[in-house]
Design a protein around this nucleic acid. Structure first.
Lengths: 207, 207
DNA sequence: GCACTTAGTGCGCACCACGCAACATATGGC
DNA sequence: GCCATATGTTGCGTGGTGCGCACTAAGTGC
């Protein structure tokens, strides 16, 4: 079939994208949070083995390139929850999905520290986390039998979960990565999803 | 004493800042979400009656100037909660503080729609909302008698509250601003604030 | 009134996003 | 295997921006 041939280009494209992203993150980490301005587009491009113009075809800002991996991860949050067994209660499903998404490979401390302690990257990192909320909200709504457009619960819970994971990351870094990240995530999520499974009487979700 | 004289300069500085911010938001709204790129720094500066260089002394990006008012609002979240009576329970205090901060003057729909539906502004808006979490977490910790450094609850709750308000704003816009914003905020906060009173049927937007 | 501080400004430079057009390589039909 | 086509890569040029630097003017304390 043409899949293999097609994949040749697609894979090359994906490889280029990852090369640029990886190079950007690597250079940013090398320079440290304070010297992000010293990382020039030219440096990223040459480190990735492409021209500056090609870099710009993939990303329109250094921040976007650096936080690309996090954006990809967030994009999988929705399907991670949807992939949980249907009979699993919402709260357990959320915790399990987030744990396997964010702690299966423990996050790279240097990269996490970089994007969380650099003001210029903070906005992009926030955008990446927020990107997960939409699909996550839909998955929550599907599991709770709610309408994502009418009920606030799914979107609010998704935002709370994303925020909890973000806080967990910050806390994990601040504590010198003493314990496991999974433990911190569990503790953080426990603050926002304990009462989740019970459908609140206040919200209207006529079955 | 010298306060008045000092204030003369400080006030002029503040006035300049607000003039620039207001001009930026006004121009952005005029151009609409799709034409933000057409708003040049020169336009903002001339609309505010200052030189482009002066604009750049206050803000280092159009997005920052446009979302300045929201950042200022977020900066008051902590003291809004701290200002609540000490004997008020945490959940009620949070709801009351957020309501008087975000709904005392109902938010400007055009401005809110602008910053929430423009991708370029989304990051800055997120940063503005996140800016509220720190002080908010400290206020929560103080009220709950916790240590903001050790306990995750204050920071996670602060993030959840900020996220709930953000979702409330989005939902309020999407619903055509049908009900009062205060009602939507109440309903959203009820999803995340521990033991928060469920929205009374009739007092807030029913569904 | 005088010295000091600080906001506002003009100038200039380095950098960046992006449209455009040319080129190389993969793709798919024959 | 060959050619027409689609698509990724690159160089170039341009408009725009962020910001350091030096200067001026206005506010401020003694």
């Amino acid at each position: 079939m043409t899949d293999d041939a097609m994949n040749l280009r697609a894979r090359h494209k994906q490889a280029t994208r990852e090369a640029i992203s990886h190079a950007a993150l690597r250079l940013a980490i090398d320079q440290g949070p304070s010297g992000l301005a010293l990382v020039r587009v030219q440096d990223i491009a040459s480190a990735a083995g492409v021209s500056p113009r090609t870099y710009n075809n993939y990303f329109s800002s250094r921040e976007e390139a650096i936080c690309s991996f996090q954006a990809d991860q967030s994009r999988r949050a929705g399907q991670a929850l949807a992939a949980r067994p249907a009979d699993e209660p919402l709260d357990r499903a959320i915790v399990a999905a987030m744990l396997e998404l964010y702690t299966d490979p423990e996050p790279d401390r240097a990269g996490l520290r970089m994007i969380m302690s650099t003001p210029e990257l903070e906005g992009e990192a926030l955008k990446a986390f927020t990107m997960a909320e939409g699909p996550l909200a839909e998955a929550i709504a599907a599991r709770a039998g709610m309408d994502p457009q009418r009920d606030l619960f799914p979107a609010v819970t998704a935002a709370a979960v994303a925020g909890a994971i973000r806080v967990a990351g910050r806390h994990w870094l601040a504590s010198g990565s003493a314990g496991s990240f999974a433990g911190v995530v569990r503790e953080a999520l426990a603050c926002v999803v304990p009462s989740a499974p019970a459908p609140r009487a206040g919200s209207s979700s006529p079955a």
